[in-house]
Design a binder for these strands. Structure first.
Lengths: 220, 220, 220, 220
DNA sequence: CATGAATGAGACTTCATTCAT
DNA sequence: TATGAATGAAGTCTCATTCAT
């Protein structure tokens, strides 16, 4: 009925996130997960058929949430730029909320072209597809220019986001809130308005001053 | 002595690229590499001290070439946008010339935050750093706006490039030349001018139809 | 209390017969038995102390019945040949009635010289012993010749029977009644009169056309 | 080329025979085999793909020899009874020469209707088939009576042989030569002439005192 | 009686690495 | 250089058995 006082399955899943993040999927042992969860070895196999299935479960759980977030952003009565901002914001907040989980997804799944990435390629591409659809709407409304294909734009946007996450993931120290917030704005601003200074300044949105300006640049 | 008719070391390295690309580093066995190279099992250990060292060698070899290409682009008397174009062009041409090698680097190293990525993080960041330097120059000259930090801009640019490669890597079919060329232009145009239509059109550069003709060919 | 409408213990035993016959003792899991019986996993251990004990129980239950059948055959006022016929008939009818159970006994116990066969060797040999006693009586009465030792004769007779069962067990299709009946006669006729044609024909008994009508039905 | 001073593969195979005979296939571990052979654990998997494959190899090696022995017996210019004698003799001598191997074959393969027996059922039945063919020839020549089908006769004969072996296998003490020789004669005499005394005495053959002298010795 | 989650020892198999030739 | 047999540590997964409810 309710979430039992000890939902061992959840315990294992959460432990796996920490262990995968710390040691990597290939480097960790199932016993590491069991130990981290504080349960017996065999219980892992009571709930999951293999180590792989744990990662699959983790990825799918989270990715469905993300697809839903993208759908909601798209459904809102906002400009395309604001929609992209909502998505970037969601992903960055996901990282803030559970950096280990995002690390696992980015490191072990999204680029794992021979293993998990291949398994989940359709689900992964669904996200790009939905982002591309937002861009296409922007083009139709004349807000986005037509030279850049929506599919490419989606790749550029998502690639930019993931690279930022990757930078944080490689950092030895945790990332501050200010930097997280600034990243949201910079991602959208860069993708929508580019690096070049030869553009109409009024489109900028909240502007760089809005986010806590002090933050580092250690990630470079 | 000389570059022998059969440089077994090179044979092994090239075979490893194919095997790593096909099966992934963790999924392949050393014997797969030896078989692919057509050499005896033990010979692999004559030339390399471990399976890891083969990947390290592969990565470092290629990454040095890339750092050099970035340096050369930076050293040339071009605009920052053209310099970015040269870099994008170099990477895309690298993919065209040896997609397996680029797949291995992107899939097995640059995001492998617990294994090879960590080992080579300094070398990897050196690339971002050099790209950031180009952006900083552009800002100093007033060509790039100052709101986006150079470090972030480098991430955005490189993330965009790698995402495009990743897309190709996941594709089951090989990518055509036209698409490769179009990607070069779109990467630079998106990063420099953004998706928004609210910008000065004259900054566009060669335009979507023309491949960035000047750019690299050093990768071959 | 009473022999309940659902005697779970019996349910488990019967399910075990089917599972052992289908998958073999070593290949099946205790959970397979529980599933087949439609009872909870733990209940198996409420009634039996181990997986082995289930097979022991199955074997002993059946083997006692068989020893009793042999004893009865021996006690009846029949000729030795008819007594052997009654035994063959009983075993074949046992197979007809519950081929799975006989399969389990033949496959998992009587030849399992390192496991169950060893555990039950005395009980198994008791059967040979009783058969040998019938042969010895035949020799004493001049009906059987003395060159073949009773112990050997018992082995020959029982080996013949078991080999016939084994043949059926390996068959993919179920065996017809006619073949079962014919086998009863052929077993006894071969063991008593041999393959050679150089013998007195009048000793043949009911003959190949008639099923050994008198024989048992206790097995049902 | 030649049989190397240490043919490790053979060493492993021979060790497996001893270990399978002593502990049974399911009860022994691969490490037991490696230890018994005095080789490293991994070498077992260098030569064999699994524990099962070791048993398969053992069985097939020996069974082909047996099929060949049956074929030779059949090809010789002997009476059917003598041919059966040659076969019984060959099998008994096989047991004398390597009781462990015969134990493994009888216990782990021949009756293992859910595992190895099933795998090799065709090969096993080939033996029965060849024996049946000898019987059929005997019937055609009027030496064997027609009431017993050749297929059944083959089962009776082989079942008798295997039961005798099984008896020895279960014995705690090794079997003496005299008993082995006597068994050869009793098997054939029982199957060919039956237990009954009501038969023509001249068909008896060499008699219980003489070992079937001509038969086999190929097994050594 | 009945349930099924929880336990953990154990076995197979893999494979990087070594080494004698 | 070149070979591939030999080594053995390590990890995944299985499953009989226990136990709290």
């Amino acid at each position: 009925m309710n979430a039992a006082p000890t939902d061992k399955r959840r315990l294992i899943l959460d432990a796996a996130v920490r262990v995968f993040a710390r040691q990597g999927f290939h480097t960790c042992r199932v016993s590491d997960i069991a130990d981290e969860a504080g349960v017996a070895y065999g219980l892992v196999y009571h709930y999951f058929s293999s180590k792989e299935q744990i990662l699959d479960t983790l990825f799918l759980e989270r990715w469905e949430v993300m697809l839903e977030a993208i759908a909601q952003a798209d459904a809102s009565p906002r400009s395309p730029e604001e929609k992209l901002g909502a998505i970037a914001s969601f992903i960055v907040d996901s990282y803030r909320h559970d950096p280990d989980l995002m690390k696992v997804i980015v490191v072990e799944v999204t680029r794992a072209a021979n293993t998990f990435g291949l398994t989940h390629v359709d689900r992964i591409r669904e996200a790009y597809s939905r982002i591309a659809s937002i861009v296409a709407d922007g083009q139709r409304d004349g807000l986005f220019r037509a030279e850049i294909t929506p599919a490419f734009a989606a790749q550029a946007f998502y690639g930019c986001v993931e690279q930022v996450l990757t930078g944080w993931i490689f950092d030895s120290e945790p990332v501050g809130t200010a930097e997280l917030e600034r990243a949201k704005w910079m991602i959208v601003d860069t993708i929508c308005h580019g690096l070049s200074s030869a553009r109409a300044p009024e489109a900028t949105g909240p502007g760089p001053g809005a986010a806590a300006g002090s933050a580092s640049s250690k990630s470079a």
